[in-house]
Write a protein that binds this DNA or RNA. Structure first.
Lengths: 141, 141, 141, 141
DNA sequence: TTTT
DNA sequence: TTTT
């Protein structure tokens, strides 16, 4: 039973094809970006448009599904929590990254062909063999 | 009619009393921080706790309500959109800030005494006289 | 400042073209239905699918936009509150209806042509002349 | 990967203590009601208040947690999906019931004492022995 | 039937 | 920096 709510819901389009990697222990991680466009009218009647970009991260099964079904330009619904990570690079510079750790994803609009990926599926089988549970923050990217 | 969804919903506790300021044109802006605590169990049975901090910004009427009714430690529900702002300081360093621009707020738990603020209310009247509509990004903070 | 949250978010397809009517005072009301499909796997590996139907109601400007842009089969995102109305028909039978009173709507998927409706737009102008604010529950339908 | 969104989020107070029962196969189900109060101002400056009542259903682990920690009057956050069930009673009358099938629950406000329930815990152990997975709609209530 |  |  949690004591806090941290929920983000997005609808937007993928900025690029998703990328899948693996943690040292073999857990799949898929990342992609979503552009969300907001339009509004100012008091003097002008129309404004602003695009906000989000970094989305998915883990485990959902990571594989995202890699397999999503591609650049597609419209998706994504739900998850907001996470800020801070780290230092090798030169000691501090960085902050804000990500949506998604636990739900829905493809919107017309159905596209699932990516043809016999190859993909095979490689999944191999890598997936070590699927022990790991900490999410174990993975540096 | 919008074409994108960018929604954030938080429940957490205020890290400090809210601060209210005004844009050059007299529009009130209130900022505060919210801590959201997440707890989960790892596969080896350990219990983890992680606190995420959020910067919340409110405008106009809601800014005044937040200033008037919220105080450090209080539990609130906040709903809004996620906004990333990038700017350079006077020395040319680049900064990024991520904020929740809230359009709804609910006080949770027991009712606290509204802050005694005859003084506050008066000053509101004065400042509020110039209430023309301005762009949100007009305000640097 | 509200003290309760009652929020519904749906993504689904319209079951029929929306219908627009007017309250006695001239306020537009548009109603339509949305089908939301849920799929899940049972423990014995069977795949289940269930479709839930929702009655959606919109008022004012949004009612006009829904009438103008939505049509049967379209995929939409809808956000609003859940409302239960109880009433008796002329024969004394009691009825209950559950509706989503939507305050946000987004068209998903590919953009369709806006319905050609010079006629529609004209009639809107006429009817719209009496646009005083009325109680939502004033309208029996 | 789902193709529809059906999400309800509520904050309100419990109208009565939750009730826990078991399906024939031993799966716990807990039901309770939540009151959500909405206040708004009409155009002529009057203040209105309306309370909406929701039937909430929880299953499995969450059912046990709700039974154990919730009691009448408590403020909670509840998240789930909207479900309409139709059935006929023994006299052939048709009924419709609308429920929130919750999958998340958060207690809001001050912490109350967990209900003292050594007895409760014991009885849980016994009944829980048959914890096979069953269909949700298997349970008539 | 709850709460403020 | 909050809360439990």
């Amino acid at each position: 039973m949690s004591r806090g709510l941290n929920k983000v819901m997005l609808i937007g389009h993928l900025g690029r094809d998703p990328e899948m990697r693996y943690t040292p222990s073999g857990r799949p991680v898929t990342t992609f970006t979503i552009a969300t466009t907001r339009t509004w009218n100012t008091s003097n009647g002008e129309r404004h448009t602003e695009t906000e970009w989000f970094n989305v991260v998915t883990w485990g099964n959902l990571a594989e599904i995202c890699k397999q079904y999503l591609s650049k330009g597609q419209q998706v619904y994504v739900e998850g929590r907001l996470q800020t990570r801070r780290w230092e690079d090798s030169e000691g510079n501090k960085h902050t990254s804000v990500e949506i750790v998604a636990n739900e994803m829905m493809i919107l609009g017309e159905r596209r062909e699932p990516l043809s990926n016999n190859h993909f599926t095979e490689s999944l089988q191999e890598t997936h063999s070590t699927d022990e549970e790991i900490e999410e923050d174990e993975y540096p990217f």
